[in-house]
Write a protein that binds this DNA or RNA. Structure first.
Length: 476
DNA sequence: GCATGATCATGC
DNA sequence: GCATGATCATGC
């Protein structure tokens, strides 16, 4: 062995030899016998580390306290490297894992310190020929661990109370209970109910993995570690201390509460931000409050990024209705074309993420705005909205079933190069979701994955207005 | 009033 | 230059 198996650093250093290489460079000539057995991680252990994989409860390299993980990357249309999927760990056993504390959990025993090897995904390629691109020695930061522990407890609460069939990745922030297994699989038994639940595994969410890849890209090296930056920056000490005593949800909602009934103008003034006429000014305002700083670009605070937390603002009119449906990002047709598994799709990630809805309500005529001196001034305000409340939301399982049909329909149209007006679900179908144009100019076109020609209309994913109204109603 | 098509201000 | 979050504008 060319490394010290009791030292994480030594194992990490040795793993650098695998970068820009594939396992075949280290495998015996007649190595085909390896294919088809075990995961890629096990193969790396055997072939590259010459280490017999253990079946223990603990980390792969037990003496170093180090878990080895391999995870795929893919190229985008713009040839940028992207995370392909969530990092999946062990299966959840609803029956055996019942009542287990975080410290007794598979995840805690294995994953505190991980060596994550990023490789380039290639369809129809022997695992011996996959190219490794980055190595990351990652110790879970204390802040992340607090949030992950909370995630774990949220998941276990459902398992312990016989509600595992209602588990959703949107329930949690970084650690998710992701679907695992084939469609026809039988349901797993759980305690305290006769209802079966689909198989699920522990996983670190795609959004969390994306921040790890960003961390690597911010460095100049293909191999890096966060070990040397484990000391917590001064400005983060407060938030770490807060996290020790409050859940993330409590902290975020607590940030919104002082601004209830205030309008955009006064909030911007309080934060010393220039007022804007941007259509998304309420989203900007919500982000300023949620992140408690003057960042005006939305959804960029650390926890929001890592959790893929999707903050959405909604305006309620004076008549109690809302005007608009809710739009999401543009449909990436190449992504839809390439991805044949619903739970690996970008749309699934968007819809199964946690949401933070921020509700604004139209004011009726006059509104009192506190001035700097402490007195209150009255203004006449037409078309002015005030912050009403903020709440977290996760899409229920039954709606995710409809979302899957929605995605399948979109995929069918994309595969048939049928990307134009009238091809997709409409509002009038009343099925929660629809597809509608979204572009800078109506004549803008995207490339069709089928023909490679710039002929595809630009569309994006939408929640129907009535679906948004239903969500608000159910959270009143 | 609503569905649908079209576009805006911003930040990177 | 374009994605993003979002709202505007039109026609029935």
């Amino acid at each position: 062995m060319n490394y010290d198996k009791t030292s994480a650093i030594s194992i990490f250093d040795y793993s650098k030899l695998l970068l820009d290489h594939c396992l075949r460079d280290y495998a015996p000539e007649n190595a085909e016998e390896y294919s088809g057995k075990g995961g890629l991680g096990q193969l790396v252990e055997k072939v590259f580390f010459e280490y017999e994989p253990n079946n223990d409860d603990g980390p792969d390299f037990a003496e170093a306290g180090l878990e080895l993980k391999c995870t795929p990357l893919k190229y985008s249309v713009k040839e940028e490297l992207l995370i392909k999927e969530r990092l999946v760990g062990g299966m959840i056993n609803y029956y055996e894992d019942y009542g287990k504390s975080f410290e007794q959990s598979h995840f805690y025993k294995k994953c505190l310190l991980m060596l994550i090897l990023f490789y380039l995904h290639q369809a129809n390629t022997s695992r011996l020929d996959l190219k490794f691109l980055y190595a990351l020695l990652w110790k879970l930061p204390e802040k992340d661990l607090i949030i992950i522990r909370n995630d774990y407890e949220i998941i276990m609460k459902k398992i312990n109370s016989g509600m595992a069939h209602t588990l959703s990745e949107g329930d949690t922030m970084y650690l998710g209970a992701c679907r695992k297994g084939q469609k026809g699989d039988s349901l797993e038994r759980q305690r305290n109910t006769s209802i079966g639940a689909p198989r699920r595994a522990w996983s670190l969410k795609t959004s969390y993995m994306r921040t790890l890849l960003d961390f690597i890209k911010s460095k100049d090296q293909k191999a890096c570690t966060n070990l040397e930056i484990m000391t917590i920056p001064k400005e983060e000490v407060t938030s770490l201390d807060m996290l020790r005593h409050h859940t993330f949800d409590e902290i975020v909602i607590g940030r919104f509460e002082p601004f209830y009934n205030m309008n955009c103008n006064s909030v911007f003034e309080q934060f010393g931000i220039r007022m804007t006429r941007a259509k998304n000014k309420y989203a900007i305002m919500a982000n300023v409050i949620a992140s408690n700083n003057t960042l005006t670009n939305v959804n960029l605070s650390e926890e929001f990024l890592k959790a893929g937390l999707m903050m959405k603002t909604i305006r309620i009119e004076k008549n109690g209705r809302i005007k608009e449906s809710m739009s999401f990002e543009n449909i990436d047709y190449q992504e839809v074309y390439d991805c044949d598994e619903w739970t690996d799709s970008r749309l699934y990630e968007i819809f199964s993420n946690r949401f933070l809805f921020v509700i604004f309500k139209a004011t009726d005529g006059k509104i009192k705005i506190p001035s700097k001196k402490g007195s209150e001034k009255e203004f006449d305000l037409e078309d002015e909205y005030v912050l009403q409340k903020a709440f977290f939301w996760t899409m229920p399982q039954e709606d995710l079933v409809i979302a899957e049909e929605y995605w399948k329909d979109i995929r069918e149209q994309v595969l048939n190069d049928n990307i134009h007006d009238g091809a997709f679900w409409k509002i009038e179908n009343h099925r929660n979701f629809h597809v509608r144009p979204k572009a800078l100019k109506g004549i803008d076109r995207d490339i069709s994955p089928v023909t490679g020609l710039r002929t595809a209309d630009k569309f994006c994913y939408w929640f129907n207005k009535e679906y948004v109204e239903k969500i608000i109603r159910e959270n009143e």
